[in-house]
Design a protein around this nucleic acid. Sequence first.
DNA 1: TTGGAATGTCAACAAGGCTGACTTAAAATG
DNA 2: CATTTTAAGTCAGCCTTGTTGACATTCCAA
Lengths: 169, 169
Amino acid sequence: MAEGHGSASGGENLLFLTDEQLRKGIEAMFFAYRGFTADPDRILEDHAYGRAHHRALHFINRTHGTTVNNLLALLGVTKQSLNRVLRSLIEDGLVESRVGRTDRRERNLYLTPKGEALERALSEAQRERMRAAYRAAGPQAVAGFRQVLEAMMDDDIRRQYLGLRDRRP
Amino acid sequence: MAEGHGSASGGENLLFLTDEQLRKGIEAMFFAYRGFTADPDRILEDHAYGRAHHRALHFINRTHGTTVNNLLALLGVTKQSLNRVLRSLIEDGLVESRVGRTDRRERNLYLTPKGEALERALSEAQRERMRAAYRAAGPQAVAGFRQVLEAMMDDDIRRQYLGLRDRRP
DNA sequence: TTGGAATGTCAACAAGGCTGACTTAAAATG
DNA sequence: CATTTTAAGTCAGCCTTGTTGACATTCCAA
């Protein structure tokens, strides 16, 4: 019932964990996620792609030369599901799949210039919203935001998340 | 590239808004949302329901007697899509639909005891994860978390979010 | 050389979004 | 009172994205 979580005070008070407070957090996640995906979704419509394509582009860009298995673990879907998305991206010339150098069973995935262009457009739209939210909330809030999100992940996912680094070729 | 956002210092430093920082925020949203939905999803499987049912149950519980139109605005889906979900919940005896008192075109939606039971199981699982994340991150982080999420919502959605209150009958 | 791992493919299915068209009932409006 | 608008529900059909299961291919490694 009582609001007032917002004060940066509160110290070690644990009474703020009322069901109502938790409920608001749950709803905030739900509504914010809608905003979070809204801008890229609009761009994707024009290309007849969906969120699954966006996610693939994002992580291929993030870790150049990643393998399919690696991508599967990040995305948390079946290979059949990813394969469908990946195939269309390869056919359309946004992603290149190269046979692995050391292990030739593997395929290393790269964005083509065309793929990079779409990825950039998508991530710029998404970053712009994130940037605006960060600015509105301030640096302290951003730190807290990240801390809570990290704590909400499954353990194995958190490890993957923390391990992600830009790997430029 | 450089990490180090995590310090609660940082003050008014705006350099933390590097693309890499924003990217990490984007990925945190993606991975955290997976964790956020994981526990209810497991429960829903046993009942042959999906996330759409969970969302409907949540908001009907939240605003007892809400109308279909109201629910549509909250969920952001088409009435055909909601109707499919709603029909199964009504058929299964989890939701009751009563003709409106003042405006008889409207239907007021309520959870039955059975519906309340499932809603409680789902939301307790989700609240438990939220509670654990809040505890791990601390009160200051929670305030920041909520601030950033609110800032990320579309304006009209934020208004609805802020307006949500428990309406017990 | 054979077993197993990585990848890819085909088929079938389900959930849950969407659009469009249409009905019914009731309220609002002229 | 007649007309229009609104709320809700329904039917049909489509798309994306997830799922299983079965199976083929390639090729590293024991």
